[in-house]
Amino acid sequence: MVQAEGKTFPFVGEEAIRPDFLETFAYEYPQREAEITIETDEWNCVCPFSGLPDFGTLVIRYVPDRLCLELKSLKYYLTSFRQVGIYQEHAANRLLEDLVRAVQPKRMEVTLDYRLRGGIHTVVTVRYPDAGGKA
Rank of each mutant, 00 (worst) to 15 (best):
T24A: 04
R32S: 13
P30C: 05
E23V: 11
T24E: 14
T24M: 02
G13N: 06
I17S: 10
E23F: 01
E35T: 13
F11D: 06
G13Q: 08
Q31F: 07
A26T: 15
F25L: 15
A26C: 12
L22Y: 04
V12T: 15
I17C: 04
A34T: 08
E23G: 09
G13S: 08
I36K: 14
E35M: 11
E14D: 11
T8P: 05
Y29A: 12
A16H: 06
I36C: 07
Y27E: 09
E35N: 13
D20A: 10
I17N: 13
V12C: 03
A16W: 06
P10C: 00
E14L: 03
E15C: 00
E23T: 11
T8K: 01
I17E: 04
R32M: 11
P19H: 12
F9Y: 02
A16Q: 08
P30H: 01
Q31P: 11
T37A: 15
R32L: 12
P19Y: 05
D20L: 03
A34S: 13
F9M: 05
Y29S: 07
D20H: 08
T8V: 09
T24W: 03
F21S: 12
Q31A: 10
F9E: 06
T37V: 13
E23M: 07
E28T: 12
E23N: 02
E23S: 05
Y29G: 06
A34D: 14
L22R: 15
I36F: 08
F25G: 13
Y29Q: 11
T37G: 06
K7P: 00
E23P: 08
A26R: 14
G13P: 00
R32V: 15
F11E: 05
I36R: 11
P10R: 11
V12K: 12
L22A: 08
A26D: 15
